[in-house]
Amino acid sequence: MSTNKTYTVPTYAAFGWLTFSTFLAVFGPLLPVESFRTIHGDFLDAKPFTAGHWFGVDSNGYDIFSGIINGARLSLFVAFITVGIGGFIGSLLGITAAYYRGRYDSIVNTAFNVVLAVPNLVLALALVAVLATNVDINEAVPTWRRLATLMISLTVVIIPILGRIARASALTWSGREFVVAARSMGMRDRHIIWRHIVPNVLPVLIAVGFLAVGVVIIAEASLSLLGVGIPDGASWGGMIARGRNDLEYNPHALYFPIIALALTVISTNHLGDVLRGRLDRREARL
């Protein structure tokens, strides 16, 4: 089985791709690439490998290479931040619920169930629709606020997913002898959670968190296809939505962002799997 060797070629490839796209995301603005919003009126529909436009130009005149670089920034930024915040809140709730049990646990658990009862996309769509309304119509809702709205919606989606896993994992750990022993010795709850439970739950959360990054990237792309994703269609999902009408005439406008998106999701999923595999073996040794 592939998990026997910890680091295989695909693992290096996945890690490499994520590092590369993170590099693009962080240093993209410093690279000598034109803004993705520039309209190249003389290069409409240019095919890939056109001088100055490596990946070609779409039918609206947007350079695809600039789009991919800029999309890396937004897609990854949104994904990592939402999973980070959602994971933090979710695990905080999940771990404490598992530790304290009782009524608090059932409230948290019900809350998770409530959010999970609504399909991801429906939930995110509804939140975006309500939160992005402005009273004075001529005052444009600034891009950062629309981005924040989107991220809040996706965070709400992520919280119960990671929260449940944190809770389940913490539940098994808080039953272990060393936790029971610590409790009976009168150690403070906060201390026990921090010292004994969190370090054990965290690896599982990181592993699942990688999978969640993939979920968020795809969810954002779906929202873009429905017209409420990252503002101005600047993400990879937005590029796919834009390229949809060009599928027949300009397939590259669609293929490049799909490949970038799929590679990223494959990488995060793979790394999540590898981490999980390592954990499982550690568990088995215990």
């Binding site: 796919i240 949809r244 599928l247 998106l261 799929a262 999923n269």
Partner: peptide, 24 residues
């Protein structure tokens, strides 16, 4: 291994991308 890897790649491609290509 073949089944796992092929499915793994497919699971990472969003459904709508598959749909668009199928239509074409």
């Amino acid at each position: 291994k073949v089944i796992s890897n092929v499915l793994f790649v497919f699971s990472s491609i969003p459904g709508f991308a598959i749909a668009l290509v199928l239509v074409l």
